[in-house]
Design a protein around this nucleic acid. Sequence first.
RNA 1: GCGCCCGUAGCUCAAUCGGAUAGAGCAUCGGCCUUCUAAGCCGAGGGUUGCAGGUUCGAUUCCUGCCGGGCGUGCCA
Length: 570
Amino acid sequence: MNIKHFLDHSFTESLTDLAGSDTPGIVKQAQRAEFGHYQANGVMAAAKKLKTNPRELAQQVISTLNPEIFTTKIAGPGFINIHLHTSFIAGELNKLHEDQLLGVDPVEPTKIVVDYSAPNLAKEMHVGHLRSTAIGDAIVRILEFLGQDVIRANHVGDWGAQFGSILAYMDRLSQAGESLSTELKDLEKFYKAASALFKTDDEFADIARSYVVRLQGGDPKCLELWQQFIDESIHHSQEVYNKFDITLTRGDIRAESAYNDDLPVIVQELSEIQELLVENEGAKCVFFDEFKGKDDKPLPAIIQKSDGGYPYMATDLAAARYRTRVLNADKVLYVVGGEQLLHLRQVFAVGRAAGYIRDNQEFKHLPFGMILKSDGSRFKTRDGAEVKLIDVLNEAIDRAFVLVSDKNPSLSEVEKQEIANVVGLGAVKYAELSKNRTTDYIFDWDTMLSFEGNTAPYLQYAYTRIRSIFRRASLDSLEGKIELAEEAEIRLGLKLLQFPEAIESTLDDYQANVMCNYLYELSGFFNTFYEQCPVLNSENPTSRLLICELTARVLKQGLNLLGITTVEQM
RNA sequence: GCGCCCGUAGCUCAAUCGGAUAGAGCAUCGGCCUUCUAAGCCGAGGGUUGCAGGUUCGAUUCCUGCCGGGCGUGCCA
């Protein structure tokens, strides 16, 4: 049950009856303990509309309600503070125990495509891919938990001019008798070597350019080299996904090149729509009044370049078309950097005009900020100045290993390694997810790999404390009822009941940090409970054990929705 | 120039789309391991929410102007 929904409906209904028109109750979780558990804020706005005294209106609202489960108090200018009965909280917790979904109501499934990660296959994944990958995967997991029909879309970059020098370099190496599979072990090095040659060696640059043309022309030898490189690169990214516990698999890849055959069709279809596609300076463009460039000049969406090539506008339109016509998506979420805001607005606008996006579909850009260096300058994305993602993950695991060895030296090497994996990777993912999606953030090893305070290990640690209690209790089964008495356990209990609300507000704007905040507060409440309320030595250990078990389930499930795993001990 | 985004404690970030006394972590200082793991708990200090107006019962949030920063702005993605 979603308590906030329940209360909001009650207060909205009451206010609407009194006001004679739709009037929201605006029920929210109270921000301070002294204001109760929830508060209804809608009275003041309603009183204004009705030109009555807000406190009197609040009194009327209260008298229409039949509050079996809560008490109310009018406060300040017209707030209604709502205090849930302890017996109600305990009762709901006991019901939660039977509920696989921990209070969350499953939805009527709709088809949702989530476009995320999308690395450029010319290079290895670097920290710049962290955001889209981690955020997208968390969104996918949460939607699936609710029962949505989710399609992961990994729109990897596997085509374009950048592959010219790579193919030319592959060719040169194989002619020199080098083993390509060895050379491709370090993609980053390979890419750098190829682009360095392109810059310094004119002959090589010419060959590289000719390879681009041959590749696009379908030259078999080029395609073979290209396929070999792509396979190797996909293998690399899959290793990162596996290590980082990202749910993407090879089957989720639909690369840019998959749309190659559709690109001329896009041009053809757009040209058939009256006055949509116009030729301008040799390029085929779509102009809309809403898009303006420098000096207020109309800004085109270029569908086909003057040299006949197709920019990513065309590919993205083809992808939109595919998602509508073939996948029949209700909703498409693009987890793509904020610098592409204008581009995606153009894609959506042209897509709508062309009928590739239908009126009943929602195509939504979920932008995220850039990663900056500690001096505030940006991590470059052109020439491999990036930190490799795999290096970040390994460093995190190494640091966690040192720490766990220090904290818990009696564990076996295998156990320490497993804990280091879970803790290290969790820390990296949480550092990413716990920040507001839309703002830029500074990449800093120590911040990202911190294991103290508001970090994944804090949540994982709370979990292990619970598991430790159960190891000591060594129960065969746990039968009984939860009874609440201490303030710390009431607060914890209510927080557990608010898991559905956390999921709801997380999806409100697809902000994973909302879920992080919830889990952090939950863990904090648990740690206070842990200090103040002995479990095994209490008068009613069963009740407290049941609270512990529920906390463990919510923590584990919540972390799992973020793509973070737990361990039994740390 | 124009468009979009941002500016909150020394640092990194919150603030549940207008709510009550703006909250955490890190760092600093003080207390708590003879009871379920101290990666923890309890407490202290630290703020003119960039600046100036406006809207109203009420503004970090909405509007206007300015200052500062970022991104984007026709054939890279």
